[in-house]
Design a protein around this nucleic acid. Sequence first.
DNA 1: TTAATGGGATACCTAATGGTATCATGTCAA
DNA 2: TTGACATGATACCATTAGGTATCCCATTAA
Lengths: 106, 106
Amino acid sequence: MNSQTQNAFRALADPTRRDIVQMLAVQDMTIAQLTLRFDMTRAAVKKHLTVLSDGGLITIEARGRERINRLEPQGMAPVLDWFSYFDRFWDDRLANLKKAIEGNKK
Amino acid sequence: MNSQTQNAFRALADPTRRDIVQMLAVQDMTIAQLTLRFDMTRAAVKKHLTVLSDGGLITIEARGRERINRLEPQGMAPVLDWFSYFDRFWDDRLANLKKAIEGNKK
DNA sequence: TTAATGGGATACCTAATGGTATCATGTCAA
DNA sequence: TTGACATGATACCATTAGGTATCCCATTAA
């Protein structure tokens, strides 16, 4: 049923894709630009972008002959939502840890 | 390098494993008990538990001939930590969403 | 002591995954 | 209009992943 959650978790399971997500958080990038940052072919990068798109984590907008890959932050919501299930189970130690992480928000 | 992050993300990429994590949040369980809850063999469940253990999400304690599988909430820290990277990039819409999710904490 | 129970280990199968190479197509610039 | 450039699509390959079946060992209960 909830395939968005599954697709998002799956998309984030690969280290290359997590790197892409972090890069796109800084700025939109074309496939060619992203490919320059990795040691793999453009085709491989494009496959990762497709998986990220399926996971709702990015959007791919055509602009002329280029494709602008843009982070879709809302795509992370299903994942964060899944984690929220544990709020009532977390012990004090992790509660403090979580608080510390969120404190970094600055 | 940071294999804990990778192993944790990978462990959570499978829906069965996410279900196991949620079940173990409620109570510790043996392999046999968990197997009753899924439509797969004990060997398959054990494989999932191994992956979860590699990801630092559970601990497996031997007690007599049984193995007590216990949630290790701190194992989620690397994942939450990874997400915290985006705090400074999130726009208002997602910031509100995140806030709403955390509001569910009760 | 013996049988049943809980689990480990291994081999095996199929499908999915991450990657490449290659060729085709649309678009921009000279 | 004619290349060069950015990307799409496809076929192919090796490895990993999720699953089963099977056999073995340790522990517990009768």
